[in-house]
């Protein structure tokens, strides 16, 4: 008999680290949950995956009319349409991830109370399935960049870094919200409008340069500021690459991610009891 698979079950206390070995063992589950998320979402819909394009595209059109044409918000010298589209693609990913991962544990409560598996795969898989939407809408951005004949700057080498910041922020907040939502269903209700409101705390419809100079460093504590302005700088050459904001964002994103992980692990033990 395999003695290596010995296990002791007892009440755990305090903060716990991540059991990477176990998470790796369950990587196939992560994959199938992600696939399930994507397939289930677009099952029995006529447009299917096209919805991933429609959401940011129509928001962009509305913003272009309302904020670009009517309110005449400054767009750092590029067409407002591109200005908001390039921001909306990472933003939509972030916002959808929050709503989805916040619900990921509650909507899978039946699984949590019936089978043991590392609970972390639930918010992880909801982020990964949103990643597919992100890639599709990102392809849309590329199409429009070609249409507008714009070449990305050499700072495109920083793009993976921006994606890491985006992922850590989404996952960090996603883990905190999902763990909270198990116990406090208020999270679910709050998320419905909160994601719409917090969009105005990020430079989606306006440029960061509209924020008073003295407040910008506080403003950039929002990791999405560095990400969005970074995207714009790379693809639209709006500003010089915002190293400072990205650095600030990286710090905050890392903090959110680490705290999220530990908070999730701390709350994990009561999920099955309160779900």
């Amino acid at each position: 008999m395999n003695k290596s698979s010995s296990l002791v079950i007892r009440a755990s206390r305090g903060w716990r680290g991540i059991d990477w070995k176990e998470l790796i063992h369950y990587r196939d589950l992560l994959w199938f949950l992600t696939v399930r998320g994507i397939k289930a979402k677009y099952a029995q819909s006529v447009l299917g995956v096209a919805w991933a394009v429609i959401q940011p595209l129509f928001s962009t059109l509305v913003f272009t009319v309302v904020f670009g044409t009517l309110a005449r918000i400054d767009s750092n010298g590029v067409p407002y349409f591109l200005f908001s589209l390039v921001a909306l693609v990472p933003w939509t990913f972030f916002a959808n991830t929050l709503t989805d991962s916040a619900n990921s544990l509650v909507s899978n409560a039946n699984m949590i109370t019936k089978v043991y598996f590392p609970r972390l795969v639930l918010p992880l898989s909801s982020i990964l399935s949103k990643g597919v939407d992100f890639l599709i809408s990102f392809a849309l951005v590329i199409v429009f960049l070609i249409v507008y004949r714009m070449l990305p700057s050499w700072h495109v080498v920083w793009l993976p870094w921006l994606l890491v910041v985006l992922l850590m922020t989404s996952l960090g907040i996603g883990m905190i919200l999902s763990a909270m939502a198990v116990q406090y269903r208020d999270v679910k209700h709050a998320m419905v409008f909160a994601v719409q409101l917090i969009m105005y705390a990020a430079p989606v419809v306006y440029p960061t340069t509209n924020v008073p100079e003295g407040w910008r460093s506080v403003y950039a504590l929002n990791p999405m500021v560095g990400v969005i302005e970074g995207f714009r700088s790379i693809f639209l050459h709006t500003l010089p690459f915002p190293y400072g904001w990205v650095a600030q964002g990286t710090l905050v994103a890392t903090a959110l991610f680490v705290f999220g992980l530990f908070y999730f692990r701390k709350m994990e033990r009561v999920f099955a009891d309160v779900a």
């Binding site: 008999m1 698979s5 296990l7 007892r10 009440a11 043991y116």
Partner: peptide, 21 residues
């Protein structure tokens, strides 16, 4: 391992599969 005990402990030697559903 779906839920944690409040006290006491369990030692299990071997791979467990639980079918609660």
């Amino acid at each position: 391992r779906i839920t944690e005990p409040s006290e006491g402990e369990v030692r299990i030697h071997g791979r467990v599969a639980a079918l609660l559903e």
